[in-house]
C-alpha cells in the first residue's frame, strides 16, 4: 500500500493510469458495441420494444425515470415520439454529458439499431412524431427555391441565411446545420429539441420540410457553389471587415513599406 502510494507520484504514473483507462474504455466499448452483422430478419415490433426498454433502463432511466415519466433531472418522454429519440440519441446529444446553457452535439453513443430499439420503446409510451422515412427527407425530392423562402421565413432568424447558426439568449445558441444529416434536420423541425420551437406537419407539411432540406443541401454542404470564392464562414459583414483590415489593408501597408523603403546601398552589400 505504502509502496503504491509512493509510486503514485512517479512522473510516469499518470501515463500508466491513462493507458489503463484507455484500454479499459476500449475493451468495454468493444464488448458493448453491437456486432456489425446485420440481423437476418426484422425483429418483431415487440422484441424491438423489449430491447429498447432494456437499453433505456441502463442508459436513460436515471434521468428520465424508470418508465420515461421524467424526473427532476430530465423531462418526461411520454409522447415525444420516435423522431425525438432518433434526433437526440442520433446526434449524440443524449445521453447528456455536461451541464451548460444547452446540451451539445457529440459523437453518438448508440448504434442506429439500438437507437431504433430505444425509439420503438419511447413511441410505445404514447403517440408522438414518428421518425421519417428516407423518401420524406431526401433532398432530391425537394424544391430548393421554395425551401429558401420557407427557410428565410421560419429558420434563418436563428440559423442564419445559409444555416451557419447564431446566438440566442444567456449563452444558448442555434447550432450550425452544416454536416447535420437530412433526417436529423427533419426530426428537429418535427420535434423542436431543447429551446428550438417545433414546426409540426400541421403548420409546415412534410413536403415543405423536404424543400428546406433541399435548400440547405444546395447552399450549405461541401459541394455548395460559392461563385465569389472563399465565403469567410458566411457570417456576413463582421468577418468581411476583419478580412478587409487584415488581408486587405495589411497587404497594402506591406506593399507601401516596400515602395517607400530605401534601396540597399552599395556599401552594405
Amino acid at each position: 500500500m505504502k509502496k503504491l502510494s509512493a509510486r503514485r507520484r512517479h512522473p510516469l504514473a499518470a501515463l500508466v493510469v491513462l493507458l489503463f483507462a484507455l484500454a479499459a474504455t476500449g475493451g468495454l466499448y468493444a464488448a458493448l458495441s453491437p456486432a456489425p452483422k446485420a440481423q437476418a430478419d426484422e425483429s418483431s415490433q415487440s422484441t424491438q420494444i423489449t430491447e429498447g426498454q432494456k437499453l433505456f433502463s441502463v442508459g436513460c432511466a436515471s434521468c428520465h425515470g424508470t418508465h420515461g415519466q421524467g424526473s427532476s433531472d430530465g423531462p418526461s418522454l411520454v409522447g415525444v415520439g420516435s423522431a425525438a429519440v432518433d434526433f437526440q440519441v442520433g446526434t449524440g446529444r443524449m445521453p447528456a454529458q455536461q451541464a451548460g446553457p444547452q446540451i451539445q452535439k457529440k459523437p453518438k453513443q448508440y448504434s442506429q439499431d439500438e437507437i431504433d430499439q430505444l425509439a420503438a420503446y419511447i413511441a410505445s409510451l404514447g403517440p408522438g412524431p414518428i421518425a421519417p422515412a428516407s423518401n420524406q427527407y431526401d433532398p432530391a425530392g425537394g424544391d430548393a427555391a421554395k425551401g429558401g423562402e420557407l427557410f428565410r421565413t421560419n429558420c434563418s432568424q436563428c440559423h442564419n441565411f445559409v444555416g451557419k447558426g447564431g446566438a440566442l439568449t444567456d449563452g444558448k445558441y442555434a447550432p450550425t446545420l452544416k454536416g447535420v444529416e437530412p433526417k436529423h434536420i427533419y426530426e428537429a423541425m418535427q420535434t423542436g429539441p431543447q429551446n428550438m420551437p417545433s414546426f409540426p406537419d400541421t403548420t409546415m407539411p412534410q413536403q415543405q420540410k423536404q424543400d428546406i432540406i433541399a435548400y440547405l443541401h444546395e447552399v450549405d454542404t461541401a459541394q455548395s457553389k460559392n461563385p465569389g470564392g472563399f465565403t469567410l464562414g458566411s457570417f456576413g459583414p463582421v468577418p468581411e471587415g476583419l478580412f478587409a483590415y487584415i488581408f486587405g489593408l495589411g497587404t497594402l501597408i506591406a506593399i507601401a513599406a516596400w515602395v517607400a523603403a530605401r534601396t540597399t546601398k552599395a556599401k552594405k552589400s
Binding site: 423542436g192 420551437p197 417545433s198 414546426f199 409540426p200 400541421t202 403548420t203 409546415m204 407539411p205 415543405q208
Partner: peptide, 21 residues
C-alpha cells in the same frame, strides 16, 4: 393565414412549443 401553406390556422394545428407565423 399561415404563410407557409396559405391556409387559415386552426387551434389544433398549433401544439405547445411550436412556432408559427
Amino acid at each position: 393565414i399561415n404563410p407557409n401553406t396559405n391556409k387559415p390556422l386552426r387551434p389544433e394545428d398549433i401544439p405547445v412549443g411550436s412556432l408559427t407565423f
